[in-house]
Amino acid sequence: MLKIFRIIAFLEGISYLLLMLAALYKRMPSGDDAFVKLLGMPHGLLFVAYIALAVFLRATYQWNAKTFVIILLGSLIPFGTFYVDHNYLKPLAEKKGL
């Protein structure tokens, strides 16, 4: 499940950045929100999957409250999921041999 969570975290981070770029460069100047609508649903699904997997994996890997909050906040901050993967998930995966 950790491997799946790392993939979801990566995809969620990419979709968040694409959504932000679409909102800034396409919607703001011209008012065209087609890209925002196109990217919004996949990002929303990936966000929900990220949160659900984080909640599920908290018990499995016995994350303390601070670690868990940082992992959850990673989904709200641009580039946050990449930080979480590099500092929390990758070392855990290397320890487990994944």
Rank of each mutant, 00 (worst) to 15 (best):
F68L: 10
Y83G: 06
I77C: 07
F79A: 10
A59C: 11
Y61W: 13
D85C: 06
D33N: 14
I4N: 13
L98G: 08
S15K: 01
I77A: 05
G40I: 04
L21S: 11
I71T: 13
H86D: 11
L46R: 01
I71G: 04
D32Y: 02
A22P: 05
Y50V: 02
I4G: 02
I71C: 09
V84P: 08
K95P: 03
L46G: 01
G74F: 08
V48S: 02
A22I: 00
P91Q: 11
N87M: 13
L98D: 13
I70C: 08
A22V: 00
D32H: 03
G44R: 04
A49L: 12
L73R: 05
N87T: 14
P42L: 01
L18F: 08
G74R: 06
G97T: 11
I14C: 04
L24N: 09
F82N: 04
Q62Y: 09
N64P: 05
D32Q: 04
L46V: 03
E12P: 04
T81S: 06
A9S: 14
M1W: 12
L73M: 14
N87I: 13
F79K: 02
A65E: 10
L57G: 05
K90H: 10
F10Y: 11
Y50Q: 04
Y16A: 09
M41D: 04
L46I: 04
G97Q: 10
L21C: 12
I14K: 00
Y61F: 15
S30I: 11
A54L: 09
V55W: 11
L73E: 05
G80R: 08
Q62D: 15
L17I: 15
A23H: 12
Y50R: 05
I71H: 02
R27N: 11
L38F: 15
N64M: 06
L89A: 06
Y25W: 12
G13I: 05
E94T: 13
I14M: 10
L98P: 02
G40H: 06
H43D: 03
L57D: 07
F35N: 12
A65H: 10
F68W: 09
P29C: 01
L57K: 08
T60Y: 12
N64K: 11
I51R: 02
D85L: 07
D85E: 15
I8F: 01
A65L: 13
L21V: 10
L21E: 04
G13L: 03
I51G: 02
V84C: 11
V36M: 00
L92G: 06
S15E: 02
G44I: 04
A59Q: 15
D32M: 01
P42W: 02
A65F: 11
G74W: 07
I7H: 03
V36E: 05
M28A: 12
F79Y: 14
F56M: 14
G31Q: 03
